[in-house]
Computed example of a mutant assay.
Amino acid sequence: MAKKKILFINQEITPYVPDNALSLMGKNLPKVMQERSHEIRTFMPKWGNINERRGQLHEVIRLSGMNLIINDTDHPLIIKVASIQSARVQVYFIDNDDYFGKRLIERDEQGVEYDDNGERAIFFARGVLETVKKLRWVPDIIHCQGWMAGVVPFYVKTAYRDEPSFAETKVVTSLYNKSIEKDFGSDFKQFMEFRDAKPELLTDYKDTFDFDELGKLAIDYSDGVIQAVPDASKVLCDYAAAKNKPLLGYQEDFGDAYEAFYESLYADEAK
């Protein structure tokens, strides 16, 4: 496979959060691709349960300082960085006191899902894309993992489609099992509006977005879809198949298969 620039947008990465299928792949996939000489960048939210001192996170002043307007409110974007020494992978963290700060991942300390999870996903998506622009780095592939990255494909193909950083980028979404139940509220479509990402593009979706609806949005605006785990959402796997999206089934030994899948997205374009 020709060497690619691959942007990994992850909901969770071990060892910064507890081990699970999503967080382990969040570390292992960038590690494997970097070992195969691909150039990578890796992002995740700076969840409140991440120990900054233990993880040796520090703020990147030159990348921080932008304000993102969501729900008519300015939210400062803070960028931090750290390295997973065992994997030799650098991780950029998207932080904000309102959306992340001292707050946990999907649920609070009592196990209750956050009412603004949808807004958090919007902030994360825009924060990553704006930071990549600032880095002046042009990815060939954007690989999204976790519902928190579900808005990214929509933005890449609409609001950011004319940006030099993303104009030729292929987007891949990995599917996992359903992890949240609460919907994102009746205003989620309006909150997503940004540049050419208009609410009228969302008329075919339910008025209220939830895990499945966000997954469908991600699939529709992705160039390829991967079943990342054996128990990935059947609803979303079936939806991707029905939409005739290039779909890679579960691969336990994923290195060669993922590389070939990335390459196939460009091969299809050349036909």
Rank of each mutant, 00 (worst) to 15 (best):
G249P: 08
K271M: 05
K245H: 10
A87P: 04
Q85P: 11
H58K: 12
P199G: 04
Y258T: 12
A242M: 14
G146M: 06
K5D: 11
T208H: 03
H58G: 04
D116Y: 11
D196C: 05
I78K: 06
L236D: 07
Y239D: 11
E163M: 03
Y250S: 02
V172L: 14
F43H: 08
F191C: 00
I13A: 07
D74M: 08
S86Q: 13
M25P: 03
E119H: 01
D231Y: 06
Q110L: 09
K189D: 01
F254R: 08
Y16D: 02
N96Q: 01
Q145R: 10
D187N: 09
V225D: 00
A241S: 06
H75V: 09
D108H: 04
L77A: 00
V235A: 09
I50G: 02
A241E: 08
P30L: 09
A260G: 12
A21L: 14
H143N: 15
M1D: 05
D253G: 04
Y176T: 10
E12A: 06
E109G: 00
I50F: 07
D210M: 05
K46R: 15
V132C: 01
E109I: 08
F184L: 15
G65L: 06
G118N: 02
G185F: 00
L135V: 10
M148S: 07
A2G: 00
E269P: 07
A267L: 08
D98V: 13
S165C: 12
K271S: 10
E113L: 08
V91Y: 06
Q251G: 06
H75M: 04
Q11W: 07
A125S: 14
Q190L: 11
K157T: 14
L63A: 03
V229F: 06
D19R: 09
A87W: 02
S83C: 12
Y176G: 13
S37L: 12
H38A: 04
K243D: 11
E39H: 09
F43P: 09
D116S: 03
K182T: 14
K4D: 04
G150V: 12
D204G: 12
D98Q: 06
G215A: 02
A241R: 13
M33T: 03
G48T: 07
V128L: 00
H75P: 10
I122W: 02
N20G: 15
N10Q: 15
Q85L: 13
I141P: 01
V112G: 00
Q145N: 15
L135C: 05
A218W: 03
F166K: 09
L24Y: 01
P76H: 00
E181A: 15
R88G: 03
I219T: 01
E252Q: 14
Q145C: 08
D210G: 10
D115L: 09
A232W: 06
G215C: 04
Q110A: 09
V235T: 15
R120V: 03
D74R: 09
K157A: 11
V152W: 12
K245C: 07
P45Y: 09
Q145G: 05
Q227L: 05
Q251S: 11
F191H: 13
D253C: 02
E193S: 14
L68M: 08
F209S: 05
K271A: 08
I94W: 02
G65F: 00
K234L: 14
S174M: 14
G118F: 03
D19L: 14
